[in-house]
Design a protein around this nucleic acid. Structure first.
Length: 262
DNA sequence: ATGGTAGCGGAGCTA
């Protein structure tokens, strides 16, 4: 089974590119983040015509997650997280940042961890809380084949970011954010991209601004944690840098995990 | 410190 995660940065703006890549890559299950639409706005037809079932969790124009599967899709769950985020005004905003479903016998969570915005912003606390609560929940799933995939908005190692001084990423490199990221290892999970692609400066995201992609200035913030029963089945990972090229690219690229049959 | 770009929705927020 081929499982991928991709922050698509609007599925409506990207649907042709995503469907084309699904065709070419042979991906069975795709976890998407930042779909930036509500379920009724999601371009379902294109996915269904390509043979994929869909689970969609979108509540506003800014985030939203989805899972597409051609190997079955059941037990869809959208109850996590329970706490809201915050608008700039300070008002609570209910957001769609996590979607669980069982596909091909694997429990897959498509995750969009809060950005954090700034160290003094309530969204930074929200980010750390989100990761801590997710880790606690994940610990209870660790004996089953479980994948936690998505945009973690954390650059765990100094070499996972082009510059730790990047003002856009202050909440991605703090000791607290990095500890919250690594805590999944204590909860029984292995990060598969690091296992198969340990090379430094292997990025998954390049900001649209300031010519970051042509200049090679990116971050590795998209990951695939697997519980031990699932990690034992992993045979390889790829980061599809080519998908950042050209007009109409997302600012993130797919991370692809290959899994042997159970 | 700022600004640079992209997306949604139709101004300003989010990243």
């Amino acid at each position: 089974m081929r499982l991928a995660t991709w922050n698509v940065n609007s599925i409506r703006a990207r649907v042709d590119r995503v469907i084309d890549w699904l065709d070419r890559s042979g991906t069975d299950v795709l976890a998407m983040q930042e779909i930036k639409c509500k379920p009724e706005q999601f371009p379902r037809e294109a996915f269904e015509a390509a043979g994929y079932e869909l689970a969609i969790h979108g509540l506003n124009q800014w985030n939203g997650v989805a899972i597409a599967s051609r190997v079955g899709l059941e037990d869809v769950e959208t109850s996590f997280p329970e706490q809201p985020g915050f608008a700039k005004t300070g008002d609570p905003v209910v957001e769609a940042r996590a979607l669980g479903a069982t596909a091909g016998g694997v429990r897959v969570w498509s995750l969009y961890v809060p950005n954090g915005r700034g160290l003094a912003d309530p969204h930074y606390t929200y980010k750390l809380d989100f990761l801590a609560r997710l880790k606690d929940a994940a610990a209870t799933w660790s004996s089953e084949p479980t994948a936690l995939v998505g945009d973690f908005n954390v650059a765990p190692l100094p070499t996972d970011i082009w510059s730790e001084e990047d003002s856009e990423a202050v909440t991605h490199v703090t000791p607290e954010a990095r500890a919250a990221f690594h805590a999944f290892e204590d909860a029984g999970y292995t990060e598969l991209s690091r296992r198969f692609l340990p090379e430094e400066r292997t990025y998954t995201f390049w900001d649209y601004k300031a010519l970051r992609f042509p200049k090679g200035e990116g971050m590795r913030i998209d990951f695939a944690y697997a519980s031990e029963p699932l990690a034992a089945r992993a045979t390889g990972v790829s980061i599809v840098r080519d998908e950042r090229k050209g007009k109409g690219a997302s600012d993130h690229v797919p991370v692809v995990v290959d899994l042997a049959d159970a």
